[in-house]
């Protein structure tokens, strides 16, 4: 894993999008970009679950099991995001403890 690129999502700079061209092969998304995209997807799923609950509670057309499945999806993706975050923080701390 390229640890140096972890800094990109923490401090989004205007050239974050251009980071793909800077980081190796053209057309290949940088690690930060991938992370950002998956974060956006997790967020989207959370919003979807929120909307499903709202729809169900307000007597809309949503069914009970579809709502539960949407919540389940949101939860699983959130857990995945948390695991990725844990790994990144772990790697960061590993680097921090490095002797110089």
């Amino acid at each position: 894993m390229d640890v140096t690129r972890i800094g990109i999502p923490a401090a989004p700079t205007p050239d974050a999008a251009a980071g793909s061209s800077a980081g190796g092969a053209p057309g290949q998304a940088s690690f930060g970009q991938v992370l950002k995209d998956s974060l956006a997807q997790v967020n989207h799923l959370q919003h979807e679950a929120d909307g499903a609950i709202h729809e169900l509670a307000s007597g809309g057309t949503a069914t009970l099991h579809d709502t539960m499945l949407t919540i389940e999806k949101a939860e699983l993706s959130f857990r995945l995001m948390m695991q990725v975050r844990n790994k990144i923080v772990e790697a960061y701390q590993e680097v921090l403890r490095m002797q110089v």
Partner: peptide
């Protein structure tokens, strides 16, 4: 995620059983 496909299959079955 690949697990969403499995959930979608079960979801369709749940909808069918509800109908």
């Amino acid at each position: 995620m690949d697990f969403t496909g499995t959930l979608a299959i079960s979801g369709s079955a749940l909808s069918a059983e509800r109908l």
